[in-house]
Design a protein around this nucleic acid. Structure first.
Lengths: 123, 123
DNA sequence: GTATGAACACACTGTTCATAA
DNA sequence: TTATGAACAGTGTGTTCATAC
C-alpha cells in the first residue's frame, strides 16, 4: 500500500508535507522562487526552533510541480539581479485546495495525539 | 553538537522520545514488560492512527535503562506462563521526572508549531 | 556573492530473522 | 505460540558538492 493511499501517515506528519502546505499558501499570495520562500519560512519558524533547509524546500517545490499543483517559469534579469530564477505559481487551485485539505486531516490528527500525550503524561 | 545538548530537535518530536514518555508513565504505575507495554500503547493510540511496533518499544526500553532511568529484572515462571520476562521498573524517579519535563518542552513546542500551521494556512 | 539542483551521508524507524521457553 | 533482541532494509532529511550567474 502506497503512502498516498493510506489515510494516516503513521506517527506525526512529515516535514515535507508540512512545508508543502506552507509553500502552497505562500505562492497563492503571489509568485515566488525557492530561496525567497526559504527565507520567508525560516523567519516564520525561527521563534519555534525549526529551521528548514534549502534542499527540503526545493524537493517540496519539485514534487508539487510534478503533482500538477504548481507551475514553474524561468524569469530572467529581474531588477538589479541578472539571474534566471525559477518562479513558481499555482497551476491548479482545486488541486492545491485538495492537497491542503488532506494535509489538514493529518495536522488535526497530530494535534490530537500531542494533546493526548500531554494529558496522559502530565496530569 | 549532539542531539542531547540541543534544546530543539528540529522539526517535530521523534517517535522514540514520544514513546519513552509514555513508557515511563506506564512503568511508574507498576512493573511491566515489553510486549505488555506494546499492547497497552497500541490500544491507546489505535483511535489516532498510530501503531508503534515492538522493535521501537524494545529500543526505547533499552535506552531508558542505559540512561539509568529504568531497571530490568528477569522474572521467571509467573502464573501460568513459564517464560523469563524482562520486567521493567523505575530506577530513578528524579531522572524519570527530568526526562519527562525535558520532553514536555518539546511537546509544547510541537503543539505551538501545529497550532500555528493550522492558523497560518486554514483561516 | 545568490540561486538551483543533485549527490551523498546519516538518522530514524519498519520488517524480517534468530533464539529461547 | 509468546517474548526478546538483533539484523537488515527503506525512507526522510541534513550536508555537501557542482553548476550557473
Amino acid at each position: 500500500m502506497s503512502e498516498r493511499e493510506r489515510e494516516s501517515t503513521g506517527f506525526l506528519i512529515k516535514q515535507r508535507a508540512f512545508l508543502k502546505v506552507y509553500l502552497i499558501t505562500e505562492i497563492e499570495r503571489g509568485p515566488a522562487y525557492g530561496l525567497q520562500l526559504l527565507e520567508i519560512l525560516q523567519k516564520k519558524f525561527d521563534p519555534h526552533g525549526f529551521e528548514p533547509n534549502h534542499a527540503e524546500i526545493y524537493r517540496s517545490l519539485h514534487e508539487l510541480t510534478e503533482a500538477g499543483i504548481l507551475n514553474v517559469r524561468d524569469e530572467l534579469a529581474e531588477g538589479a539581479k541578472r539571474k534566471k530564477l525559477q518562479v513558481y505559481t499555482v497551476k491548479d487551485r482545486d488541486l492545491a485546495k485538495a492537497y491542503k485539505e488532506l494535509a489538514k486531516v493529518d495536522l488535526d490528527r497530530c494535534q490530537d495525539l500531542l494533546r493526548k500525550a500531554i494529558q496522559d503524561n502530565y496530569s
